[in-house]
Every structure is written in structure tokens, then in C-alpha cells.
Design a protein around this nucleic acid. Structure first.
Lengths: 335, 335
DNA sequence: TTGTACGCGTTATCAC
DNA sequence: GTGATAACGCGTACAA
């Protein structure tokens, strides 16, 4: 019933031209007060709502930014999205999200689908080789990369210093008296996980300890599985650095189940500082990457790029580097 | 630089008409194989990407659905979004999200901004009076309400049977031997919280017990604060039903801090079954509303409405009612 | 101040 | 099969 009412209908109902109707509705000042009222009244009665796509086409401006994440749920991404939401709100922008499900092809596909529907792109693709994206992604659109390794493809980006974070985690465990420190790694193809692994290895070298790396995939299940491996060996480690908080959480569950005391028998630290770390028992030490801030600041950066026409986008490609902050909680505090 | 390349550019480069170019790119069959190849080659070389808004305008079809939630982060909404994402993916739809921040005006505003940019709307507005929305929201757009009270404004919807869920929670605690059962309520203006409160009150009446209701706002902080109140009174309750899981979680933290044993001294149960309940210690009993499924099924419902042109949308406004399922974990298991 | 007419990038309907 | 051309709904020079 009733195809949606257009500006034309409103103009007709108000007895003015479509141009005047447009002006009145958009609050331009070159309209008689009387005309404005007539138009607004008509619009109200007809329940007129501007057609987004048409407006976007005419103004080549959507007031929407596209967000492409590996996934759009879970503690980690949820925090990212929150940051983006807050920033977007402040800038009067809307958000078109899409999950790439860890696939580069999907990410590119999503980006293509967003062309002409967003003013800029915020993408996080930690698994992607820089070259995989650089050529295919930017369709003359302002773009900011979140996470990933530094200076990825010369795109403006916000990255976490995963390497020094990992280094700090190891040093912390060492200071707490740990001498056999194991690591639960993230997905092999994940660039951030790779950096964290490097930091761990260098940290152990620095301390003169020998490393033990267990495979993982960033899920709590992987953390749980990893401790099963550890429990089966002759000697347990006395320190455990998980590449992210979810795996640290899974590890604590497994250890508690086995009656291992945390942090006395084994100290644990994660990475990211997602909310649930505070609710775990014991609360889990971690490295606060400022997930929320990453989202918010990325959006601000993108927003700025959009405003200035994204002129020399890559010129000012000053990749902001976020240095994670050590957060010590009960899971690793031994004194 | 270089204004984005259009279909016209591609057509010109391939030496065909814009119409043929369109056909070739959209895979229609009435094109010579040779023309198709020329067009595709040109498109590839020019890095052509279809303009979403223009396509939407021409086809009056966006392949996008708008999602309006009170918030777009946190465990609960994250799960909803996950469900929607899965459903959307299956239907080849994109998602335009917006948080209303608990404000009806904001929700309506968001919906207006989405007009002409989406094919349908998925909205959750638990604080909204049915009448507040029914008139202002549907701009000739297929719409499905998530949550809220049943049959809200005759719109097709997916609602949780909060009342019987709450009733079941109370019965469970009673069966476990609890005789002084307190309730931490949700926000007063929240319709779902109201239903849960009703269920609680009727449940206590049924058991012949006297109720104690503490105020809350669905945050863990509120749960924590509520137990401080309880700890200060002469006699502690021996059972606690929180209107949602986050408050139940906050309550367990407060109680553990005070050295109160769960579930021996006090049994606890929440509502919603968000992921974190499983990681808490002890794991928290709850009522599984199937948050994920609500998202997914809402989308499926909406998708169906869109396909069939939303003809008699409200005719088939068969509000699907989800009956929550009791999930007993350590926090309330006394035997 | 107001109205006319064109353009935004695509799709779809025609003739050819 | 292919190519003009009219929508789609709106903003906006430009002219009046």
C-alpha cells in the first residue's frame, strides 16, 4: 500500500516547487517562513521521510562509514564497535558493519559492496598480507586500518605494539619469579599473534629461559586444550602467557578444574584486557591495548580524513601506534 | 584522486553502450560472450566498483537491513548481533546498525535515517511504549520487533516469555530449599524487566513467601550494589534472582568478596544466558532466552517479509514467543 | 524568494 | 544482441 511518499508529493501538497520543499526541509534560510510551515506541515501529514540512497547519490555524501571486522561479536570486537559507535555518534555518522569471517576474499567483497554507500572505510584484517589488500581495497575511499602490523601498505592506521606488549608480559612473569614460562599462541596466520609470539621468544631469550609454545586460535577452547597438554607433561610450567585473554580464561578454567593453584603454582597473563578478565576468578592479568580507544580513535582519524577530502591521505599516513599497558591482577601477583 | 570510475567509463573503454556494460557486469544472458569479456576486462583494468546508492535508487532494493538496538555492544547485544549476522549472511544481506542509547527519540531518528537505505528494519526497544513507536516507526518498511512485550502494536515480533521465565526461576530456587528469595530488578521503564518482576512476585505468592525487591539497571555494578544492601541487613536472603546475568555476576563478585558461600549460603540465578555466565565462579544458573536465536530468527522473519513484498505484514503478525529454558549451574545447585 | 532543469550512477523498457 | 532513453528521489546552479 502506498509507495513511499517523495519530496515531490510533499511539494505538491504544499503547493510549492520541489526545490522550495527541499530547501524548507533542509532548513536553508532562503525560504519564506510561511512556505516553510506549509511544507513542514505537509511533510508531517504525509509522513515524509527523505530517501537515503537518493540523497546520497545527489550529494555524494552518505554520512555513513563502513566497518569491516573479522567478526562482529565477542568481547573483543564488541569493545571495538563500542569505540567506533561513540566516535561515530560524536561525528553524526552511521555505521555499516560487516564481518569478514577471517577471510581476505570476504573482506574485499564486503568492501566492494559498501562502495557508494559509505564515506569511508574502517577495516581490521589481521590475517591479511599487506599486498593482498593494498591493491584491492581502496576504491578511492578514505580508509583507516585497525590493528594489523605497523605501516601496513602505507595506509593510515592504528596499530597496537604487540611485540613490546608481549615482551613486557614475559618480563612481568619473570619478575614474579617464574622460570618456566610457556606461551599459548594465536592463529599462525594472524599478524598480531605473530608479533606477540616474537615478543615472547625474545623475552625468554633475554631472560635466558627456554621457551615452550603451544598452538592456539584465540578461543577459550584453545586455552583449555593447551593446559591439558601441559598437565600431561612431567613438569608443569610456572608461568603462562596467552596470546589473548580468551585463551588465558580457558586456561584458568582448565587449571582450576585440575586443582592447580593460580598464581601460586602457575602465574597467568593474557592480552587485550577484554571486560571478562575482571570477572574471572582469579581476575586475569593482561595487557591493556585499549580496545575501546582503538575503535574510537580510528574513527576520529577516518572522520578527519573524510573532512579534508582525504586529499593526501597516505601522506599523513602517520600510523598511530598504541603501546599496551600492563595490568596486573590476581592471576599473576605473587607477592 | 580521480573521481570514482562509473559504469559509463567502463562502457566507453570497452566500446559498447552503457546498457550492454550493465548487462555484462550483472551476468545477464543476453550478451555476446565477446562483449562480456571486453566489458569485464575494462572493468577490471579501471577498477570499477558499482555504486551502491545509485543501484539502490534504480532497483529500489538495497540488500541491507537496518538494526536498531538500545546498545550495540556488551555480551547481550553482541549475541543478538551474532544471530543477525549469521542470518543475514545466509540471505546475502548487509547490516546497518545503530544504537538508540535507550532513548525512544533516538530510535525513531535512527529509523528515519535508515529510510531508503535498507529493505527492512529490525528493532529492539524494550523501553518504548507501544504507541510511541507504532505510529512513528514504520515508514512503509517491513519491520520486525525484537523483544519487548508480546503483540506490541500489532507488529510482527519475536518476544521472550519473560514472565514464565521468572516464574520458573523462582520455582527452581524454591525447590532448592530457598525460603527468603530476593530479586534485583531491571530498569523500571524496561518492559521486559517489568515482566520479570511480575513473574518473581507471582512466584513468591505461589510459594507463600514474602518478596524483597532491590533496584537495578542491568549492569554488574547494580548487582554489586544490591548485595551491599543485603549484607547490611539483619538477615540475608538465601536465594537471589537477578533480572539479568550481568547483575547476577556483579552480585556473585560482591558476595564472594564478603566471604558468603554460593550456593550454600545463598543460591543465585540470572536471566539471558550470556556467555560470561559459564566463566564465572561458580558458573551462574540462568534462563536461556536463546539470545543468539532471537537475532537469527528475527532476521529470518524479516527476510521472509521482505521477499513476499511485506504484503500483509501485520496479517501474519504471528508474534513468535520464545519460552526460556532453565539452565542450572553451580550457583544454584544445592544437592 | 521561488521555480526550472540538470546531474548523481544504475537499471529497465523499449525500439532497432 | 544491442543501444538510446526514461525512470529512481533528491540537491542545486541558474534564471526569473
Amino acid at each position: 500500500m502506498a509507495a513511499s511518499v517523495t519530496l515531490n508529493d510533499v511539494a505538491k501538497a504544499a503547493g510549492v516547487s520541489i526545490a522550495s520543499a527541499s530547501r524548507a526541509i533542509n532548513g536553508l534560510d532562503n525560504v519564506t517562513e510561511e512556505v516553510r510551515e506549509r511544507v513542514l506541515a505537509a511533510a508531517g501529514k504525509l509522513k515524509y521521510v527523505p530517501h537515503g540512497a537518493a540523497r546520497a547519490l545527489a550529494m555524494s555524501r552518505t554520512n555513513t562509514i563502513g566497518v569491516i571486522l573479522p567478526d562482529i561479536y565477542g568481547e573483543f570486537f564488541s569493545e571495538i564497535i563500542r569505540g567506533i559507535d561513540v566516535g561515530a555518534r560524536a561525528s553524526g555518522l552511521h555505521i555499516l558493519v560487516s564481518g569478514s569471517h577471517g577471510d581476505v576474499k570476504e573482506a574485499v567483497k564486503a568492501a566492494r559492496a559498501m562502495a557508494g554507500r559509505v564515506d569511508g572505510l574502517l577495516v581490521m584484517a589481521p590475517y591479511a598480507d599487506a599486498d593482498d589488500l593494498s591493491g584491492k581495497l581502496p576504491f578511492n575511499l578514505p580508509l583507516v586500518m585497525m590493528g594489523g602490523v605497523g605501516g601496513q601498505a602505507d595506509l593510515p592506521s592504528l596499530v597496537v605494539d604487540n611485540y613490546s606488549g608481549a615482551l613486557e608480559a614475559v618480563r612481568h612473569l619473570h619478575e614474579q619469579g617464574c622460570r618456566r614460562i610457556a606461551h599459548i599462541a594465536g592463529p599462525e596466520s594472524n599478524l598480531e599473534a605473530q608479533d606477540r609470539l616474537r615478543g615472547y621468544l625474545d623475552g625468554l631469550k633475554e631472560a635466558g629461559l627456554s621457551p615452550q609454545v603451544l598452538p592456539g586460535d584465540f578461543t577459550d577452547g584453545a586455552g583449555y586444550a593447551a593446559v591439558q597438554t601441559l598437565l600431561a607433561q612431567e613438569q608443569m610450567p610456572d608461568g603462562l602467557f596467552a596470546a589473548n585473554d580468551m585463551m588465558a580464561l580457558g586456561a584458568t578454567l582448565g587449571l582450576r578444574e585440575a586443582g592447580v593453584s593460580i598464581p601460586d603454582d602457575i602465574a597467568i597473563i593474557g592480552f587485550d584486557d577484554i571486560p571478562v578478565t575482571r570477572y574471572a576468578s582469579p581476575p586475569i592479568s593482561t595487557l591493556r591495548a585499549g580496545v575501546f580507544d582503538i575503535g574510537r580513535r580510528s574513527l576520529e582519524l577516518l572522520s578527519a580524513l573524510i573532512e579534508r577530502g582525504s586529499a593526501e591521505a597516505s601522506a599523513s599516513a602517520a600510523s598511530l601506534i598504541v603501546r599496551p599497558e600492563l595490568v596486573v591482577r590476581a592471576s599473576s601477583r605473587r607477592r
